[in-house]
């Protein structure tokens, strides 16, 4: 399996705070990789840096063998990476359909219809509500919209930041089922989650972040059984 994303010795500072302290990891084609860790461990910082919203102080990020350093966020989408951001951040005053169209902003308009019907098939709820403004959707529907929007760019790598946040347990399961089926359909996934149990159960591989450093890594199953991980993140 070839590497889709490789991150090497990445350092990020917020002013004087050293948020990421030289992390190195990779995501291979077809995998679901998850980053777990406590609040403030640097999970979202990692995704925001990879997607170009934050500038690292040093280190290397490569997508499909091509360096992303110095590339502005809006150019990175074209290279095949989509981030479904923390807190969903749908455009609440745009309609559901317009939100999805924005997801395909970098693609020729002739290809949009196909992707739209694909997303509607995956999320029938969005089709029913395509004319509603996104702000009127429920939390679960907004999460689906944010994921659908990210899919509209046809990414080779899709990054999801806390997709389960604030959702009822039944919806969380539904969201994770969708992530699995997206992966089966060929999308490589990098998942950041606080819900470590769920994330590890669907992940091929996982990394544990602690205060800006990767402290443990392994397959999802290995980490589910790991004593330290169980104690710290899975409630014993």
């Amino acid at each position: 399996m070839s590497s889709i994303l490789s991150v090497t010795d990445l350092n990020v500072h917020y002013g004087s705070i050293h948020a990421l302290k030289g992390i190195t990891f990779e995501v291979k084609e077809g995998e679901i990789v998850t980053l777990i860790g406590a609040n403030g461990a640097g999970k979202s910082t990692t995704l925001n840096t990879i997607s170009g919203l934050l500038k690292p102080t040093s280190g290397k990020v490569e997508l499909l063998g091509e360096s992303l350093m110095g590339c502005p966020a809006h150019k990175i989408v074209e290279k095949g990476m989509a981030l479904c951001p923390e807190g969903r951040r749908v455009f609440s005053q745009l309609s559901v359909r317009e939100n999805l169209e924005m997801g395909a902003y970098t693609r020729p308009s002739s290809e949009i219809e196909d992707s739209l019907s694909m997303v509607y098939e995956q999320f029938p709820r969005l089709k029913e509500r395509s004319k509603q403004t996104a702000g009127t959707l429920s939390g679960g529907e907004q999460q689906m919209l944010a994921m659908g929007r990210a899919l509209m760019s046809k990414p080779s790598l899709m990054m999801l930041d806390e997709p389960s946040m604030g959702l009822a347990p039944i919806l969380v399961e539904q969201i994770f089922d969708i992530i699995k089926s997206l992966n089966k359909a060929g999308t490589t996934i990098l998942l950041v989650e606080q819900n470590a149990q769920m994330a590890l159960s669907i992940a091929n591989r996982a990394y544990v972040l602690e205060t800006g450093k990767i402290v443990i890594s392994g397959t999802g199953e290995e980490l589910l059984c790991d004593e330290a991980v169980r104690k710290a993140y899975l409630g014993g």
Binding site: L53, P72, V77, R89, L94, Y105, T106, R149, S153
Partner: peptide, 12 residues
């Protein structure tokens, strides 16, 4: 509405 999210869509 949201400059950051707009950038993630590929909007300049």
């Amino acid at each position: 509405e949201d400059k950051g999210a707009a950038q993630l869509m590929g909007i300049n």
